[in-house]
Deep mutational scan, measured.
Amino acid sequence: SEEEIREAFRVFDKDGNGYISAADLRHVMTNLGEKLTDEEVDEMIREADIDGDGQVNYEDFVQMMTA
């Protein structure tokens, strides 16, 4: 549901600035027990970053979650 997606976005957007940065993503993945290299984190950001601004905004996140 849209509310679940919004809630998930809030979990990833640690600093609440409306964007998921590589640092935000790394933090959440580490908490989930996933040890990722910087390259892996950057690749995840690139794949999710639809508009190419280097971070994942809510619209990018929705597209990723509903793809």
Rank of each mutant, 00 (worst) to 15 (best):
S1K: 13
S1P: 07
S1H: 10
S1F: 14
S1T: 14
S1C: 13
S1D: 07
E2V: 13
E2C: 13
E2P: 13
E2F: 14
E3I: 07
E3L: 08
E3S: 10
E4L: 09
E4K: 14
E4Y: 13
E4M: 15
I5Y: 12
I5F: 09
I5L: 15
I5M: 11
I5V: 07
I5D: 00
I5A: 03
R6Y: 09
R6I: 06
R6V: 04
R6T: 03
E7S: 07
E7L: 10
E7Q: 10
E7G: 07
A8P: 01
A8F: 06
A8M: 09
A8S: 05
F9I: 02
R10Y: 03
R10I: 04
R10W: 03
V11C: 08
F12S: 01
F12I: 04
D13I: 02
D13N: 01
D13S: 02
D13F: 02
D13H: 01
K14M: 08
D15M: 10
D15F: 08
D15K: 09
D15R: 05
D15Y: 09
D15P: 03
D15E: 11
G16K: 07
G16Q: 07
N17H: 07
N17V: 05
N17F: 06
N17M: 07
G18E: 00
G18R: 01
G18S: 02
Y19P: 00
Y19K: 14
Y19I: 06
Y19W: 11
I20Y: 00
I20R: 00
I20W: 01
I20S: 00
S21E: 04
S21F: 06
S21L: 09
S21H: 07
A22L: 15
A23T: 11
A23G: 08
A23W: 07
A23M: 09
A23R: 08
D24R: 01
D24K: 03
D24Q: 05
D24W: 03
D24P: 01
L25E: 01
L25G: 02
R26C: 06
R26M: 10
R26P: 06
R26D: 03
R26H: 13
R26K: 12
R26N: 05
H27N: 10
H27W: 14
H27G: 07
H27V: 12
H27T: 10
V28T: 02
V28A: 10
V28P: 01
V28C: 03
M29W: 05
M29F: 07
M29T: 02
M29P: 00
T30V: 11
N31C: 14
N31G: 11
N31T: 12
N31R: 10
N31P: 01
L32N: 02
L32W: 10
L32T: 03
G33E: 05
G33D: 10
G33V: 09
G33C: 15
G33N: 14
E34P: 14
E34N: 15
E34R: 15
E34D: 14
E34W: 15
K35A: 10
K35Q: 10
L36G: 02
L36Q: 02
L36R: 13
T37A: 05
T37C: 05
T37S: 10
D38N: 12
D38H: 12
D38P: 14
D38Q: 13
D38F: 10
E39R: 11
E39N: 09
E39F: 11
E40G: 03
E40R: 10
V41L: 13
V41R: 05
V41F: 12
V41K: 04
V41Q: 03
D42C: 08
D42P: 01
E43C: 14
E43K: 15
E43G: 10
E43N: 15
E43T: 11
E43P: 01
E43M: 15
M44G: 01
M44I: 06
M44Y: 07
M44C: 06
I45A: 03
I45R: 03
I45T: 03
R46G: 07
R46H: 04
R46E: 04
R46S: 07
R46V: 04
E47N: 15
E47K: 15
E47H: 15
E47L: 15
E47A: 15
E47V: 14
A48S: 07
A48V: 12
A48W: 08
A48T: 06
A48M: 08
A48L: 12
A48C: 14
A48Q: 06
D49N: 14
D49G: 15
I50L: 09
I50H: 11
I50F: 10
I50Q: 09
I50E: 04
D51F: 11
G52E: 13
G52Y: 07
G52W: 09
G52N: 09
D53H: 09
D53I: 10
D53N: 14
D53L: 08
D53Y: 09
D53E: 12
D53C: 08
G54K: 03
G54I: 03
Q55K: 12
Q55H: 09
Q55D: 04
Q55G: 06
Q55E: 06
Q55N: 13
V56I: 13
V56Y: 12
N57G: 07
N57M: 11
N57E: 06
N57W: 14
Y58H: 01
E59T: 04
E59V: 06
E59F: 06
D60G: 11
D60R: 15
D60L: 14
D60C: 14
D60V: 15
D60F: 15
F61W: 05
F61R: 00
F61P: 00
F61I: 15
F61A: 03
V62Y: 07
V62F: 06
V62W: 07
V62S: 02
V62Q: 02
Q63H: 10
Q63E: 05
Q63S: 09
Q63N: 08
Q63C: 07
Q63T: 13
M65P: 01
M65V: 08
M65W: 06
T66H: 11
T66K: 11
T66G: 07
A67H: 10
A67L: 02
